[in-house]
Amino acid sequence: MHFTFTAPLWEWSARAAWYFVSVPEEESADIREIPRMPSGFGAVKVRATVGNSTWDTSVFPGAAEGVYVLPMKKSVRVAEGIDEGDPVTVHLELLEL
């Protein structure tokens, strides 16, 4: 299953220098509906692509109920020239189906 969306990059206020992009509500709902084995923290394994950068990671349930968040590695932010507040177009491929 694949998703493509655009959302702003934001910094987690509880931990400086940790950045995320929120998966929109509709896509988050679609991810939640897919049956899978329970995992730590409700994480779902994904392959993320932003620009020319692709990496394997997980999306996690965010503070907003029902919305997943994608951690954005510093190496990706630097390589793609992304700063806090910038719109980020993300292609997600679920790896757990």
Rank of each mutant, 00 (worst) to 15 (best):
F3M: 08
F3H: 14
T4F: 00
T4Y: 01
A7N: 15
P8V: 03
L9V: 14
W10M: 08
W10Y: 13
W10I: 07
W10H: 10
E11W: 06
E11M: 15
E11N: 06
E11P: 01
W12Y: 14
A14Q: 15
A14R: 15
A14V: 06
R15S: 09
A16Q: 14
A16S: 13
A17R: 12
A17M: 07
A17Q: 12
A17K: 10
W18H: 09
W18I: 04
W18S: 09
Y19V: 01
Y19I: 00
F20C: 10
F20G: 04
F20M: 08
S22H: 03
S22F: 01
S22C: 03
V23C: 05
P24F: 07
E25T: 06
E26P: 03
E27D: 12
E27N: 05
E27H: 08
S28L: 05
S28H: 04
A29T: 07
A29Y: 08
A29C: 02
D30P: 00
D30W: 11
I31M: 14
I31K: 10
R32F: 03
I34N: 03
R36K: 12
R36G: 09
M37S: 14
M37E: 15
P38T: 01
S39K: 13
S39L: 12
S39W: 11
G40F: 04
G40Q: 15
F41G: 04
F41M: 09
F41A: 08
F41S: 07
G42R: 07
G42S: 08
A43T: 09
A43F: 01
A43R: 08
V44N: 11
K45Y: 10
R47A: 09
R47S: 10
R47Q: 14
A48W: 02
A48R: 04
A48C: 14
T49N: 10
T49Q: 15
T49Y: 03
V50S: 06
G51A: 04
N52T: 15
S53F: 01
S53I: 00
S53G: 00
T54C: 07
W55C: 02
W55H: 05
D56F: 01
D56G: 02
T57N: 04
T57P: 03
T57R: 01
S58G: 04
S58T: 05
F60H: 13
P61R: 11
P61A: 07
P61S: 08
G62C: 02
G62D: 08
G62N: 04
A63N: 10
A63L: 15
A63V: 13
A63G: 09
G66D: 04
V67H: 11
Y68D: 12
Y68N: 10
V69H: 12
V69F: 02
L70C: 07
L70Y: 01
P71I: 00
P71Q: 03
P71D: 06
M72F: 14
K73W: 00
K73V: 01
K73R: 15
